[in-house]
Write a protein that binds this DNA or RNA. Structure first.
Lengths: 218, 218
DNA sequence: CAGAAATCCTATCGCATGATAGATATTTAG
DNA sequence: CTAAATATCTATCATGCGATAGGATTTCTG
């Protein structure tokens, strides 16, 4: 397909990818149209097929691009948390790492305008599995839930494999999504016009309270 | 259009509505097709237009049907909670009502197989507003968040209008959705094959812990 | 049992979509 | 500089969609 030789096309490829990320972010796979993407990338329709084979190929390429960017952002934080787990940290330390992770994730998901589209892409694909489910599940969701569950188990003083820890992890992560997938509706409920630094701080503080409570509860 | 006279058509109408609820539950408005709905209802295509005017009209009718059924199920519980709020109940009483509401909602959303489709319909429409947003927001979401936020405020001993109470309400409700919108992926994480009574009990117990924590935190 | 009203069907329209054919333009290699 | 490889374009195809036209059928009214 492409990738080697002829360096001009690489820039086209990136332009298409950027347009596709935006399109697949704000619409679903079937609702977004290749024409709309081609227009936004200022190329003609068949160029998409030339570079990515098909609409589905383009979609998969988007997923891979997202995974890469997400890794850059979250990897250091996750690594630090895993190190803390290995070194038998205290419950309080586990809570601290949970707060860092949740806070970073909240900032990442809710903060930047570009990332917002990616987050929608990921959320949709995980809720309603499509061509990119596997890569997103294995690269993002599974490890994220894993480390969260282990930290929660540590914070509550229960075994790492306890299903209750995983349930709490899912509840915690899912609650974060109130202001991501559910952004529009949450803005309406809160009567906010946007989520700026002030609003983000309030959300973080509520999350911190939740996390403190998780640790103290049992 | 229809509604009066000729009683035969009423049964057709119901058959169409049932097929549409299932279709719009498992696919989005644009992904579900009128042909598929007509087939499932064992009628020909134009019958949909005859009874509901258009695809969008049918969609709206689905939303209204859902609201009605939801009301039947949740109204008594919500009413009892509101009474408790009026009569200046204690923080512990507020927590108890929160548990009842969250538990009932969890059972309602996650339990029945029929309701599962409706819940997906509602969730999708609230995340990505379409023709039925207003009725769902005003009839389901807004009052639900409202009463939850007031109970949380009471449980935490903060003013009813405190934005923090609303944030916590959104986080709580959103966490519930881990096993609703996110059912597939949560089953995978938990290595469950379905959400039966045993699994539901574990979820309820985790939610109760969350609610206890909310009350005790601040 | 008529005749009118309502319900439902077959056939088709117009449109948007993803994909492809085939020609043209651009870039690199020798 | 030329020729092959690569990249892009215009024009078109086949398909599936929501909607409608116009006629047949069923159901109620008197």
């Amino acid at each position: 397909m492409s990738g080697n030789g002829y360096r001009k096309s690489e820039e086209t490829r990136q332009r298409i990818l950027a347009a596709a990320l935006e399109a697949f972010g704000s619409s679903s796979f079937s609702e977004a149209t290749t024409r709309q993407i081609a227009d936004a990338a200022r190329v003609s329709l068949p160029v998409l097929q030339y570079h990515f084979g098909s609409k589905e190929g383009l979609y998969r390429a988007c997923a891979e691009a997202i995974v890469e960017r997400y890794r850059e952002h979250m990897a250091p934080i996750a690594t630090r948390a895993r190190e803390a787990l290995r070194s038998n940290g205290t419950a309080a330390a586990a809570r601290k790492h949970l707060k860092v992770i949740a806070g970073a994730l909240a900032g990442f998901l809710i903060g930047s305008n570009e990332v917002k589209h990616w987050a929608h892409f990921v959320g949709r694909e995980l809720r309603e599995p499509g061509p990119a489910f596997d890569i997103l599940y294995e690269s993002l969701w599974k490890p994220g839930v894993e480390v969260t569950a282990r930290l929660i188990a540590r914070a509550r003083g229960i075994p790492e494999k306890d299903p209750a820890a995983r349930i709490h992890a899912l509840l915690l992560i899912s609650s974060l999504l109130a202001f991501q997938s559910g952004r529009k509706i949450s803005l309406r409920v809160m009567q906010w016009s946007k989520i700026g630094p002030k609003e983000l701080a309030m959300i973080r503080s509520a999350l911190d309270a939740q996390i403190d409570a998780i640790g103290g509860g049992a």
